[in-house]
Amino acid sequence: MARTFARLAGVILLAGCTIVALTGCPGSRDPWPEGNGKRILTSFAPLHCFAMNVVGDDGTVLSLMTNHGPHGYSDSPADALKLRRADLFLINGLELDNTIARKLVKSSGNKNLRLVPVGECIPEKQLLEGGCHCNHDEDSGKKHDHDHGKDPHVWLGIPEAIRMVEKIRDELKAIDPANAPKYDSRTSTYVERLKALQAEGREMLKDKKERKIVTFHDSLQYFARTFDLKVVDVIEIAPGSEPGTFKMNELIKTCEAEGVRLIAVEPQYPSNTAAKTILKELRARGIQAEFVEIDPLETARSEELDADFYETKMRQNLKNLAEKLK
């Protein structure tokens, strides 16, 4: 009798585990509304905003990541629910979120899910070289000729953002041809807004003699190219990886030699780290160094995820720069 009960309990436990595996954690709610067109999942905030402006009322757009961006993301059961019923999964690509996405798609059980690395639609000649994630403190005298890959932070360049929006339009038309004219119309409207944003930013900065900045991590190359700025160096070789003594000294020398005052810091990371040390050292040497906050848009609070997110954040970045640059 005891053995029979034990076997029965085992069967019940196994069945319960199977149900949880298929439906998510107990009490988890399906995030997708019923009967509202295509279900579009995006990896993080900029893509969510781009997709919202193309989809309009003809579908639902959700973001996989909010408070944690691609550099610090870890998946959860709630994320699995988003993937299970999505029609389209839009990611940045260029090796920023590809590994995360492939893992999630494989475990989702959604055989119809279409994975699209949106940033990879940008022509290779338009892509910039990625930052070096090596530590050269110990081998500064050695030849440095290895490949850094491509810089994945393409959404921060307006011309690149426009190509990404157009790619999203094309993918939506492929899975929902009945609404193609509306996707075309919304995309045209949004692209004009993005072009106006670029013109507005250049106008804000046109009289600035200073054009050089040091950035916190290697995320602003496309932004700098869009607005005729120059990133002369970066502080962290990778997000969360503080520079060593050799790199710190090189950064300070570079700022002196290039006449760089502004250090771009990000709201996602504390500024009282190596950035503050460099700031203090430059000031001690008579340079009027300052921080300028530039948000790379990699994270967002849930309440910020709307169709205006990208323009709002980019305008604030430009305003911050306009106030600090001389």
Rank of each mutant, 00 (worst) to 15 (best):
R3E: 15
T18P: 00
I19F: 14
L41Q: 04
A51M: 13
M52C: 05
N53F: 01
V54Y: 06
V54F: 05
G56Y: 13
N67E: 15
H71W: 04
G72M: 06
G72V: 05
D75A: 14
R84G: 01
R84T: 10
L88N: 00
L90G: 02
E95W: 02
L96H: 12
G109E: 06
V118F: 08
E120A: 06
E129M: 09
G130A: 13
D137L: 02
D145T: 13
H146A: 14
H148F: 08
K150T: 11
K150A: 14
H153W: 14
P159C: 06
I168G: 02
L172P: 01
A178G: 10
A178S: 13
A178K: 13
T187L: 04
V191M: 00
E192Y: 00
A196M: 07
A199Q: 09
A199Y: 01
G201D: 08
K206Q: 09
T215I: 13
S219V: 11
V232D: 10
D233F: 03
T245H: 03
K253R: 15
C255N: 05
G259D: 05
Y269F: 15
N272R: 04
A275S: 15
L279Q: 15
A284R: 09
D295N: 14
E298S: 07
T299G: 08
A300C: 14
E304R: 09
K313I: 11
K319G: 02
L321K: 14
K324L: 09
